[in-house]
Simulated scan of single mutants.
Amino acid sequence: MRRLILMRHGEAENALAGADDRRRRLTPAGQAAALRCGQEIRALGFSPEIILCSDAERAVATMHAVVRSAGLVGVATKIQADLYLADDHSVIQACGDEDDAMETILMIGHNPGWSEAATTLCGTPLSLGTAQAALLEHPADEWIAAISEIGRWKLKGIVP
């Protein structure tokens, strides 16, 4: 069984003209929402063995909040520049690059790529709000097999 959690970062500060978009921070509401999402992920029994995260400050801060609230301290993390504003194909391909021993992956990043990846995998139009996560499952034993089954993933829910 493969499980994938596609989470959009929490609400961030407004972009300022000329400022580096990667440096945008979470708002207090974004921080609180990320904490709630982590709690819900844990309550639903999704426990990732690895977290793949965009290198944008708002995504990394979201990851830290989820790690604390979901009890994921010690889970392997990869902060990846190529996940910053990644398209759906790049998001999905990143799963195929992971070790099959990792049955559950949490990915934290940005729209539109995250919503589009969830839509592509389950075949149902989805739009993730800030600090929301799509919980997806596929019965395959390997990531490569699972990601090749476009449209055949089961949407287990969107949290919160």
Rank of each mutant, 00 (worst) to 15 (best):
R2Q: 13
I5W: 06
I5C: 14
L6W: 10
A12H: 10
E13S: 13
N14W: 14
N14F: 13
L16A: 15
A17G: 12
G18W: 11
G18C: 09
A19K: 08
P28A: 15
P28W: 12
P28F: 11
A29K: 15
Q31M: 15
Q31P: 00
A34L: 12
Q39Y: 01
E40C: 11
I41T: 06
R42M: 02
R42S: 11
A43K: 14
L44W: 03
F46H: 05
P48N: 07
P48K: 01
E49S: 15
A56E: 08
R58M: 07
A61N: 07
T62A: 09
H64L: 14
H64I: 00
A65R: 13
A65W: 11
S69N: 12
G71H: 05
L72E: 01
A76C: 07
K78Q: 12
Q80S: 12
Y84M: 02
L85D: 03
D87M: 00
D88K: 14
C95S: 09
G96M: 09
G96P: 12
D97Q: 14
E98G: 05
E98V: 14
E103C: 08
T104W: 04
P112E: 07
P112R: 05
S115T: 08
A117G: 02
A117E: 03
A118M: 02
T119A: 08
T124Y: 03
T124L: 09
L126E: 00
L126Y: 00
S127L: 08
G129N: 12
A131R: 03
D141F: 04
W143D: 11
A145Y: 08
E149F: 08
I150F: 01
W153I: 02
W153Q: 00
K156G: 05
K156W: 01
G157D: 02
V159Y: 02
